[in-house]
Write a protein that binds this DNA or RNA. Structure first.
Lengths: 141, 141
DNA sequence: TTGACATATGCCGATATAGGTATATATTAC
DNA sequence: GTAATATATACCTATATCGGCATATGTCAA
């Protein structure tokens, strides 16, 4: 009845553009030789209100994309990779859809289109959707 | 003052678990030899109300993750890769954080921790955060 | 033309959450 | 002790959307 409470998964965590900015900032710091960045430094870098930074960091922390370490009254944040790997791995399952094979997809789609054009709408000759042995009783007719 | 209207970017599109299910179903169909699947078939596969399927497909379509083709009164959906590649590429920027280098991060973090422990909180010896030449006038003091 | 089928869309209510501001909670400094 | 600094959190409001339902739109069949 409303949007699913998915704040706690990595996909949703990086769905927020600001959160990606935070991660970019952390990655940049890492590249510059600082694997860890204090909240206040992020505030200065991003130029956002401190509570906003803390809140976004909290979300990233809860899903395990960043790690925190306490040093005195400071909190040093660093990227944790694992959570992002989840996403990377999931998208990797679709890599066949953007590599050279993509042309084959298009070609096949066009072939299907042309075929369909030719024969009004009979979906017989070109492998319609045989995977639908999964059909269900409801509309089985 | 509320969540950003980011429905139109791929990151947000796949943040919704149901949408990932739709993509998984399309990928499965593709693997089974069907590069395109009609809405009604997805309804049967996923066992969701038809409007829900159509709406999720609409979102995926708007961000370009899926493509549609008309065949008679049917809409044949297929995966479009490009949008997912965007995400894959972005996460790839962080691959150094989950590969073997991760150990080095941890080692360094621990080294910093130990050092900090030893010297109350003086952040001098171990490269505090020199990237902050970015500091701003506001809290510059 | 009329009706059945396939899909999209509009409207609704419920809810998750982003941003803002003030404040609580540490921790260090004096 | 008290003040100052660093960060988190609670509260509020606005809004984006999800799901459910009804219905509009388009296409095929008779």
């Amino acid at each position: 009845m409303a949007r699913s409470p998915t704040t706690l998964d990595p996909f949703n965590a990086i769905a927020e553009p600001k959160r990606r900015e935070v991660l970019d900032a952390l990655a940049k710091a890492f590249a510059a030789g600082n694997p860890e960045v204090a909240v206040n430094d992020l505030v200065n870098i991003l130029q956002w209100p401190q509570p906003q930074v803390s809140k976004h960091l909290a979300v990233l922390r809860e899903v395990g994309i960043v790690a925190v370490r306490h040093r005195g009254r400071e909190r040093l944040y660093s990227i944790n990779g694992e959570g992002l790997k989840t996403i990377h791995d999931w998208t990797a399952m679709f890599d066949k859809f953007w590599t050279h094979k993509l042309d084959r997809i298009k070609l096949r789609a066009e072939a299907l289109a042309r075929a369909a054009e030719g024969e009004s709408a009979a979906s017989s000759s070109i492998a319609p959707h045989p995977l639908l042995a999964i059909r269900h009783p409801s509309k089985e007719s």
